[in-house]
């Protein structure tokens, strides 16, 4: 192992868990804002981040009213940073909710399929929201008109006639990615394209081709 590698290990290890979590949180947020699909819920990361936020809020509540100017400025710094984190988490949650609302049946199916994966697609709260929201809408359609339809047409998820009523997002939409680790040659399905993806590259490629490598952490969305 050469000097550079040793130095790299040492410097990376000396970066605090908090900073790593902020890197991951930022990366997850950007990914959710630009990817056409909803990505797996980063449950461990969110647990740590939310826990830290909660404790920081408690700290500020304890200290507010303490008019010592030194404490006061420290609080200003802490509160300023707290708002930044709250924004990150808030925007992240709502970006996901937007996708959940847009393609609920498709996402429900994906979530069920993810039950055996390392990371389920939705958080328990999101799953609850999705199923409740769907139930509300279904009941609303039923009471507004659907209950008066012939029985064969009352389903919300039918795919007869070759036209699916289950909407899904455009998985081939183009996205910007940055290569974090060399990936090598990538083929774009249905075309002649072969891309050589090296660390540091920035590419515009269709999402479906990139999905797996984003999941494995070799690429990030930007």
């Amino acid at each position: 192992m050469d000097i550079d590698d040793l130095l790299a290990e040492v410097s990376v290890d000396s970066i605090s868990q908090e900073t790593r979590d902020l890197q991951e949180l930022t990366r997850s947020w950007v990914a959710e804002r630009v990817a056409p699909e909803i990505l797996p819920w980063p449950s461990d990361l969110m647990e740590r981040v939310l826990d830290r936020i909660r404790r920081q809020i408690e700290l500020v509540e304890d200290q507010t009213g303490n008019m010592d100017p030194k404490t006061n400025f420290k609080l200003i710094v802490i509160q300023t940073e707290l708002e930044r984190f709250k924004f990150l988490v808030r925007s992240f949650l709502r970006a996901r909710l937007k996708k959940i609302d847009a393609h609920p049946l498709h996402i429900l199916a994906r979530h069920a399929a993810s039950a055996t994966d390392l990371l389920p697609l939705l958080s328990p709260a999101e799953h609850q929201y999705l199923t409740s929201h769907q139930a509300l809408l279904t009941s609303h359609y039923a009471s507004s008109f659907l209950s008066q339809f012939p029985a064969s047409l009352q389903r919300m998820d039918d795919t007869t006639g070759g036209i699916s009523m289950v909407d899904k997002p455009d998985e081939d939409a183009a996205v910007f990615v940055r290569v974090l680790r060399d990936v090598g040659e990538v083929a774009v399905e249905g075309t002649d394209k072969r891309l050589e993806m090296k660390r540091g590259d920035v590419w515009v490629v269709r999402w479906s081709t990139m999905r797996g490598w984003v999941a494995s952490g070799d690429l990030e969305l930007i």
Binding site: R84, K86, V89, R90, L93, R94
Partner: peptide
Amino acid sequence: WTDIDLTGSLEPP
């Protein structure tokens, strides 16, 4: 998500 204020501003602080 009370700590986060879910319906708060979607603009960066």
